[in-house]
């Protein structure tokens, strides 16, 4: 197997970008450089009429009063697409951004969920992402449910979480059991299974994600890189190959 001509971060950004539909209002939270890159890529390719709200990006921040406005817009149901992650994601599609271990004596205290616990109910389409695909990241049961994929009845909820994008694969949490929806180029089903801490429903055959196109990589390494490095300079320096 020859090594790919793109980095894992570039692949993630491309897969994220393909989720953005033209005309949508898209929210991106804190510490998500690959997601920010993906949304800006979409904006410069197939989704020029998307409205992006990307935390920390002056150019993509259509508000005047900080994060509260994004949360309020989301509570009103006017954010069409949001991206969520977790230090842990479990077989039910629940995410954890609060603590690893017991909450009162945590092994690791995480940044906290911010809008996870509210936006997940009122945004109609939520895409999960995980920048490292491992058994630490995909666990049987999260230590703390920050965002749930299965709230009790009698609660306003727009839908279940959609797919989860990782450097290895695309998982889907919409059904009863998590499904391996696709493997990324050059990745085997075996590799995904070995790095996932719960059983996956495996269709036969498992489709392969179409690899990044030359156009996607070119836009990513020029326009997108330039914008991302203003907010995430260390990520931009490591994530993007030079366009040659």
């Amino acid at each position: 197997m020859s090594s790919p001509h793109y980095t894992p971060e570039e692949l993630m950004a491309v897969l994220i970008s393909r989720e953005v539909r033209d005309g949508e209002r898209v929210g991106v939270g804190t510490l998500s450089p690959a997601v920010a890159a993906g949304c800006i890529l979409a904006h410069h390719t197939h989704a020029p009429n998307a409205t992006l709200a990307i935390w920390r990006f002056q150019e993509y921040w259509p508000f005047t009063e900080g994060m509260k406005e994004m949360f309020d817009l989301g509570q009103r149901g006017k954010v069409d697409l949001f991206f969520l992650s977790g230090a842990q994601i479990d077989q039910f599609g629940n995410t954890n951004l609060v603590a690893i271990g017991d909450y009162d004596r945590p092994k690791v205290r995480l940044p906290g969920g911010a809008g996870s616990g509210t936006l997940s109910y009122t945004v109609p389409r939520i895409i999960l992402f995980q920048t490292s695909h491992s058994r630490r990241a995909f666990v049987e049961k999260v230590d703390f449910i920050t965002a749930t994929n299965d709230p009790p009845p009698n609660v306003y909820r727009r839908g279940k979480f959609n797919r989860c994008i990782t450097p290895l694969a695309v998982l889907n949490f919409e059904g009863e059991r998590p499904v391996l929806e696709a493997v990324n180029p050059g990745v085997t089903v075996q590799q995904v299974v070995e790095n996932t801490g719960f059983p996956l429903v495996i269709p036969a055959p498992v489709p392969e994600t179409p690899p990044p196109t030359d156009e996607e990589l070119c836009v990513l390494r020029t326009v997108v890189k330039e914008k991302v490095q203003t907010v995430y300079p260390q990520f931009a320096a490591a994530a993007f190959r030079n366009e040659d």
Binding site: G113, G117, T118, T146, V155
Partner: peptide, 10 residues
Amino acid sequence: PVRGLIGTDY
């Protein structure tokens, strides 16, 4: 009042 949180560990 907010929408959300019910079903989470918050």
